[in-house]
């Protein structure tokens, strides 16, 4: 009985903590919007908010899991609590395995320092080639064009025909994030 009460109290406490965090976030994002509207620029509130809330939910879930493990006996095949993110945040799971040759071609497009720098530049929004040249002076004009062709061929970048801007595609963003995530994980392992 005492364990059950402790668990309920703990869950209540966690719920309150989550509510407080949500309110705080709402205020922060509202404040940010007002501030940026005033300055005439915008930020991607949605993405950072949903990521942050996802992390908060995961940490709350971990807390609940810990309490359950301490309070209730869960056998080797016991239930596991899963906090699912909303549908929009679900991981994209391919239905079939990718053709290794095609996957290798895409990864090959990604596997070049300058091309990763180009993707990094495009993460903040569409850019004209002149802007890329200015921001990436270490890449010569002809090489830059060649890299952009390779990135387009791999479907990581698309060029507008009317304005001429280059835009990073959905797969392009995913690929860039994947490269960063792997590198980050690798760095952490080295530290350990």
């Amino acid at each position: 009985m005492s364990d059950e009460k402790d668990l309920k109290d703990e869950m209540k406490k966690l719920k309150e903590e989550l509510k407080g965090l949500k309110d705080q976030l709402r205020e922060m994002s509202h404040g940010d919007n007002q501030e940026h509207e005033h300055r005439g620029i915008h930020i991607d509130v949605n993405e950072s908010l949903s990521d942050y809330l996802g992390d908060v939910m995961e940490s709350v879930a971990e807390g609940i899991r810990g309490e359950l493990r301490r309070s209730i006996f869960i056998g080797p095949h016991g239930s596991e609590i899963k906090i699912c993110k909303g549908k929009e945040e679900e991981e994209h799971e391919p239905k079939t395995k990718a053709d290794p040759a095609k996957a290798a071609a895409i990864m090959s497009a990604l596997g070049q320092e300058h091309r990763l720098k180009i993707l990094s530049e495009l993460m903040s929004g569409g850019k004209y080639i002149s802007e890329l040249q200015t921001n990436l002076p270490e890449i010569t004009t002809s090489t830059l064009s060649s890299h952009l062709d390779i990135l387009q061929e791999a479907g990581l970048v698309i060029q507008e025909r009317v304005r001429g801007r280059y835009l990073i595609t959905i797969p392009g963003r995913m690929a860039y994030k994947m490269a960063n995530t792997i590198t980050d994980l690798r760095n952490r392992n080295f530290e350990i």
């Binding site: 569409g126 698309i158 060029q159 507008e160 009317v162 835009l167 990073i168 595609t169 392009g172 995913m174």
Partner: peptide, 12 residues
């Protein structure tokens, strides 16, 4: 081409 925070989609 539609620009979304997750990347561009569509074609010219």
């Amino acid at each position: 081409i539609i620009e979304t925070p997750k990347g561009a989609i569509g074609k010219s």
